[in-house]
Computed example of a mutant assay.
Amino acid sequence: MDNQKRAGKLGISRAALLLSAFPCLAMPAPALADTINSSLSAEVRQPLTVIKNSDLIFGNFVAGAANSDFRIDAVTGIMTQLNGDAVVIGGTTSRASFTATGTPFAQANIRRSQNSINIVRVGGTETMRVNDFWLGNRAGLRDQILDASGQATYFVGGRLRIGANQAPGNYRGSFDVTIEYF
């Protein structure tokens, strides 16, 4: 029994020694702290509004025996014949134009929702395709910073594809543009 008592006392002594060592290890060292101030900010911008100044109009043609393509340049507004034998016989031509108004010096970028649409003959089912929409401003830039008055003007051109022996008539359609505000 003496051996058991001695072993028990040794076990208690060791446990007491270990327990007395743990509080020193578990006590946190004093922390160094520093405080810094940070600013907060938010900007509420004027809502972006967009108005249409003019439509994309290709003018009047007489269809030829071959497919013909015409392009209105978004930057210059000039229409050129790319190929084919259709003949331009006058009428108004214009690039589409839109003006965005918002917070001065904010960025506003124009995007198209589709790159190809069919315009349909009024009173019929015949179509012509308009595609390759070209978006930009006078410098050809799609992404713009609104000026000091909070405005920017965007232009849209495109390519009209007239089919060989295209049915005569007035062809109409529409396209969408989006101006994203940053």
Results as ranks from 00 to 15, higher is better:
residue 34 D to V: 04
residue 157 G to T: 00
residue 102 G to D: 12
residue 97 S to E: 14
residue 181 Y to N: 12
residue 175 F to H: 07
residue 6 R to Q: 04
residue 170 N to P: 04
residue 96 A to I: 02
residue 8 G to M: 12
residue 109 N to A: 14
residue 73 D to R: 02
residue 80 T to Q: 07
residue 176 D to C: 08
residue 29 A to V: 08
residue 38 S to C: 09
residue 112 R to N: 08
residue 158 G to F: 00
residue 101 T to L: 15
residue 104 P to K: 11
residue 136 G to I: 01
residue 62 V to D: 07
residue 31 A to R: 06
residue 149 S to D: 14
residue 139 A to H: 08
residue 150 G to E: 11
residue 93 T to E: 08
residue 169 G to I: 03
residue 18 L to W: 02
residue 88 V to N: 10
residue 82 L to F: 09
residue 63 A to P: 10
residue 81 Q to S: 13
residue 129 R to M: 12
residue 123 G to C: 05
residue 98 F to K: 04
residue 43 E to G: 12
residue 49 T to D: 11
residue 29 A to N: 03
residue 123 G to Y: 02
residue 43 E to Y: 13
residue 62 V to P: 04
residue 99 T to F: 10
residue 19 L to M: 01
residue 147 D to T: 08
residue 22 F to T: 03
residue 38 S to E: 11
residue 105 F to H: 15
residue 77 G to L: 10
residue 73 D to P: 00
residue 122 V to L: 10
residue 106 A to C: 09
residue 177 V to L: 05
residue 9 K to D: 00
residue 70 F to S: 03
residue 178 T to N: 12
residue 112 R to P: 05
residue 5 K to I: 09
residue 76 T to K: 00
residue 85 D to N: 10
residue 175 F to R: 01
residue 83 N to Q: 13
residue 100 A to G: 15
residue 4 Q to H: 08
residue 30 P to F: 05
residue 172 R to H: 03
residue 26 A to Q: 03
residue 100 A to W: 12
residue 157 G to A: 02
residue 27 M to G: 06
residue 107 Q to I: 15
residue 84 G to V: 07
residue 124 G to W: 06
residue 144 Q to V: 15
residue 89 I to N: 03
residue 144 Q to H: 11
residue 111 R to I: 03
residue 28 P to K: 04
residue 72 I to H: 01
residue 61 F to K: 10
residue 105 F to E: 13
residue 1 M to G: 06
residue 71 R to A: 13
residue 170 N to K: 06
residue 91 G to P: 01
residue 50 V to Q: 12
residue 69 D to S: 15
residue 67 N to S: 13
residue 99 T to C: 11
residue 143 D to N: 12
residue 82 L to C: 08
residue 145 I to H: 13
residue 84 G to T: 05
residue 158 G to D: 05
residue 154 Y to H: 08
residue 176 D to Q: 14
residue 53 N to Y: 09
residue 100 A to F: 13
residue 83 N to L: 11
